[in-house]
Structures are given as structure tokens and as C-alpha cells.
Design a protein around this nucleic acid. Sequence first.
DNA 1: GTGGTCTAGACCACA
DNA 2: GTGGTCTAGACCACG
Lengths: 122, 122, 122, 122
Amino acid sequence: MTTEFQSSKPIYMQIVDRIIIDILQEKQILGDKLPSVREKAVQIGVNPNTIQRAYSELERMSVVETRRGQGTFVIENSHLLDELRLSMQTEVINEYVKKMKEIGITKQQMISELQHYLKEED
Amino acid sequence: MTTEFQSSKPIYMQIVDRIIIDILQEKQILGDKLPSVREKAVQIGVNPNTIQRAYSELERMSVVETRRGQGTFVIENSHLLDELRLSMQTEVINEYVKKMKEIGITKQQMISELQHYLKEED
Amino acid sequence: MTTEFQSSKPIYMQIVDRIIIDILQEKQILGDKLPSVREKAVQIGVNPNTIQRAYSELERMSVVETRRGQGTFVIENSHLLDELRLSMQTEVINEYVKKMKEIGITKQQMISELQHYLKEED
Amino acid sequence: MTTEFQSSKPIYMQIVDRIIIDILQEKQILGDKLPSVREKAVQIGVNPNTIQRAYSELERMSVVETRRGQGTFVIENSHLLDELRLSMQTEVINEYVKKMKEIGITKQQMISELQHYLKEED
DNA sequence: GTGGTCTAGACCACA
DNA sequence: GTGGTCTAGACCACG
């Protein structure tokens, strides 16, 4: 809600988010190979360098490991899923609270309105 | 979190959001005159047409009214604030629930984790 | 000594090393601004992107911080120097021990030969 | 640590180092025949001229001798090993001291930190 | 001006 | 084939 204009997240970070969500939803299985840099690049229509950067970031986050000449693989770590879920969850909650504050919702209401919304949804 | 790339909201809608938040935070008083299209345009460095479009949208939403030869005014309506707050709130909650679902958080947890976060914040 | 051929460290990492050494030798004062990306690029004759990457790496290592529109600054942290020195020292010792092992020098000799060399140097 | 960029040692010198290490580690026995220039070239995927140059350098260093029509042989000289070891050792110590100086480690520490490191390793 | 991101296209090492 | 690095040149947001 803060004025952002063209900003939005960098493409490579959006790709990082997308891949993490795929892992959490088990569309990307632990230990499996991600598409090659070039393949993924044509698949989603960006420059290979952008994918490269996304994969590097994922490696820095210890989500994937790269084996030279073989490819990029999701790390097989039973804790990985929980850690990823937790960090993304914190980010989402953070954003929620920030935006609600901005429009003048009290903490009490942040909870009660959410409860009400979820009840309606059923 | 949904892959959007360059997209993000159109600029004029971001300006609409910004003005609504200003009203909710009483930086824009009910009944008061908004800056002229030209003035606002230079203020935030955007084409006057973009501001014009934002003001039109605000008029369509019955948030402002334009008086020929005088300018654009925030409608003096005590219910307005509540309505605006409600619609923005719904949007924010919507987004929160969608993203939490995406990373596999249950409805129960959506509430309990939020409560936990707000408690920590104090 | 292990066969490396063209390998050698990537240029951007060599730049990182160089800057860290400059900091340790106080040629780069804590809190001071590094040359701009473009300036440094022409200075040492590489592409600005390569400098950019070096600066990013330094930021990741918490050695510098970047202030948007202002530049890249060495972090003012009294512990920084000691930490940097320690990590580089470990790297150098590591390499020393590995190479000495390779040519069949015993641990005892790794120390005594070094002592002998340093005595000669005076 | 010294800025070198693309440089690194010439390939033929790296091959020289490799062969000397093989001799020191007794993977290449004294008096034995080295692989032919052509054989070695395909073995490590390099131009035969590069191997030729490496062998010449080894001959200049009195490490091997070439017998016309027979091949290149490691010289059978009991002192050879010690001499090689010594010269490589000096090179390694040299580099160690230079780098440690560069990051501001005192001579005392160059020894004590090494001792500490070797103790840890056990 | 500053740093940050992105594209296009190249070359390298490893397998 | 794979990932990793580098150049060239462009556009953006921030101050």
C-alpha cells in the first residue's frame, strides 16, 4: 500500500518465492533436480542470467545445491520445509500487520476481523 | 507471492490507495479540497493524465466530488471512512489468507500465529 | 598447486579480497565511502557489473552497507577488523597446510621450517 | 591475494608443479619413464606443445632427462627429492609469509596461530 | 549523481 | 549438456 509505482519485487526474487512455494506444495520434490538455467529461462520468458541469480540466491539460502556439470538440486533436508514455511509465514504476517496498521485497524480487530472472515468462508 | 513480474498495480490505482490511506489517517480532512490535478502531478512526478484518472476513480467510488471551476473535494460523509476502511481491510485480509494458504498454513494457525506475533510485538 | 589451469578465483572475489586487505591496512577507513561502482570499474578496468557483484558480496558479508543514491560505505564496527583478519588468516593457514601436506612435509616441519625462514629474514 | 585477475600461472608451469608433486608423493617413481608427450597431452586435454614445454622446463631443472627415441625419464638421484621438496617448500612458505603480512599478522602470530591450527586438526 | 536490476550474448570448467 | 563468470549496454528508483 506504500507508494511503490513500478517497484514491485525484483523478478529474480519473485522466481525465488515461486520455487519455494512449489517446494512447500511438493510440486518440487526434495532432492530432485530443478530445470536447467537455460530451460527455465525460456519456460518463463526471462534472461538466463536472471534465473542464474535466482538459483544463486536459493543456494545462499541453503534451499538448493548445485553440482557442477549436473544441475541444481533441492536439498534433501527434513527440516527444510519447516524452516521455509516459517520464514515465509513471518514475512506474510509482517506485511499484514503493517498494512492493517496503515488503515487504522487495532490489534484486537486484526484478529477478530480475520476470524470473522474465515468463518464466512466455510 | 503470485508471479507478477513487471505488472504490479497500475500507478493510478496506487495513487488512489495512497489518497484513501491519507483520508483514513486524517492527513486529508473530510470536505477538504484535494490538490489540483496539475499540482499533484508535479508533486509526485507523474503525468497529469494519471492523476486525472485517479481522481475519476475516486469519484466513481463516491469518495470525492468535483465542483466545476473549484476543484476536487473529499465528500463529507461520516460513513465514508468506515466504508473505505472496510473495503481496504477486506482486500488486505483476502491477500493474507491467500498467501498463507499458498504456503500451507491451516486456518487455525493463521489466527494463532498472528496472535503470537502481536503478543511478541509489545 | 592442485591443477587449476585457467581457473584462479573469479575476478569479483579477487576484488573483494583486495578491498578487505585495504581495510585491514587502513587504506580504506571505517565508515568511509568506497569509490562508486562506475568509478571503480574504470579505475581497475573491468565491467561495472563485476564491481557491483563485488560490492554485493561485501554487503552480504556485512563489511559494507549501501545507502541508496549515496554510495557504498565501509561499516563502522570496531569488531569488523578483527573478524576480517581472523577469517582471512584461517584461509591462508588452510592453504599453507594443504600445500605443505601435498609435498610431504610433516606437521613438525611445517612449524620448524617456518621459524627458520622467519629467522633468516631478519 | 595479490590482484591477478585472468593471469594465474601459465598452464605449463602448473603441469610442472603437478609432476613434481607426483614424484614427491612417489606416484612417479625415480628412474621411471614419464608418459609420452602425445599421451600426456590427450590425458589431460591440452596441446602437446604445452606438455613439451613442461618437459623442457623439468629437464632444465634437472628433474628429468630425455633419451632420444626412448622417452623422458625421472633422473635417479637420491638427492633430487630433497632438493625438489626444499624448493617447493620455500615457495609455499614465501607465499604464506607474504599473505600473512598483507593482512597484518606479526611474525610471532604467524607461528603461534599455525601451531594452534595444527593442534585443533588432530 | 548513486546503487540495483535486466537483457543479450560470449566464454569457461566440469562431466 | 550443466552451472559460473564476464562484458556491453540499457533502464529504474532514490536523493
